[in-house]
Simulated scan of single mutants.
Amino acid sequence: MKRAGRWLSSLWLAGCLVGTGCSKKEEAPPHPAAELPAPDDTPAQPSGAPEGAVARGGEAAAKPPVAVGELPPEEPGAEAPSGAGSPSAGAGAPSGSGSPSAGSGAPSGTGSPSGGATGAGTGAPSGGGSGGVTPENPKNREWTTDAVSLDRRDVPQATLRSVRAGAHPDYDRVVFEFEGTQLPGYRVEYSKEPVVQCGSGNPVTLAGKGQLQVSFTPAKAHTDAGEPTVATRELKPALPVLLELERTCDFEGEVTWVLGNKSNAPFRILELREPTRLVVDVKH
């Protein structure tokens, strides 16, 4: 019986090989997960330097380049000077007996000072608060028609050395330059009363409908011998908005100049140094 079974199995195998052949047992289809690529935890490396990259040398050259961030915008008032004036480094219209040193628009601290009513001075604002001195109020750099003031009663009396004016595409500029490194306190406002000379009380007539008073305390515009430090007390630059300037006070620690504007146009105040200046911009 066993021999008969073995004979039948051999006969079936021979028939399978001679005939159509036997197909192998089909393999099970692969699991879907086997088709996914192997995970890669290595971060992708840039194919090239990013835009604005700075090349690095030495050992750091083999590392990815470092992208440079966008530079901050310039401080207000860094535009090139314009306007008529003496041949100082800028083109503002300087006046007064003071030396034609930098007058300017950019805040101090960036770059060398340059002259003129709107020259690009250095970049950091003056009055950094050292030694108990009241620092500049950043809000005073905003355009306004309201009174702007900063009290510095305890600083030494500052001497005004020059006054100059110049025009920009969007505003007119007046620069008050002082001796030394410290600005006095100030108050800038449109006068609601007729303008008068502080000593005599005589009325002052200026061109324009807006009389912008700029007063400094403690300050003076004369030497110990009584000689004026600014040669002229009246300017007529005839700029788009600023038509005339006149000194109305140099008495008991106060110096006042009045700007005759076409109207009560918005203005802003900038404190600059190297040299020490207070800038008044009047918007067109």
Score class of each variant (00 low, 15 high):
212 L>Y: 06
207 A>T: 04
214 V>A: 03
211 Q>M: 15
190 Y>N: 05
211 Q>H: 15
193 E>A: 14
215 S>R: 11
174 V>I: 14
167 A>H: 11
185 G>Q: 07
208 G>F: 00
184 P>D: 06
204 V>H: 04
202 N>E: 15
209 K>Y: 03
204 V>E: 02
209 K>R: 14
184 P>N: 07
220 K>S: 09
204 V>T: 10
195 V>I: 09
202 N>S: 13
214 V>C: 08
203 P>W: 03
214 V>T: 08
182 Q>I: 15
189 E>D: 13
183 L>M: 09
200 S>G: 10
218 P>A: 10
198 C>I: 10
183 L>T: 07
178 F>A: 09
216 F>M: 06
201 G>H: 03
194 P>R: 07
166 G>F: 03
170 D>Y: 12
193 E>S: 14
192 K>F: 02
170 D>T: 14
170 D>W: 11
208 G>L: 02
195 V>H: 05
167 A>W: 03
171 Y>G: 04
202 N>D: 14
194 P>V: 08
205 T>L: 12
219 A>M: 07
208 G>C: 07
171 Y>D: 07
187 R>C: 02
166 G>N: 05
190 Y>M: 03
167 A>M: 06
174 V>D: 01
186 Y>M: 00
218 P>L: 04
178 F>D: 03
171 Y>V: 03
177 E>M: 11
186 Y>T: 00
214 V>Q: 05
196 V>T: 15
168 H>N: 10
194 P>Q: 04
180 G>P: 00
174 V>G: 04
191 S>C: 10
204 V>Q: 03
212 L>E: 02
182 Q>Y: 07
217 T>S: 14
208 G>T: 01
198 C>N: 14
172 D>R: 07
167 A>V: 11
175 V>F: 07
213 Q>V: 13
181 T>D: 15
168 H>K: 12
193 E>K: 13
220 K>Q: 09
178 F>G: 02
220 K>Y: 00
184 P>W: 11
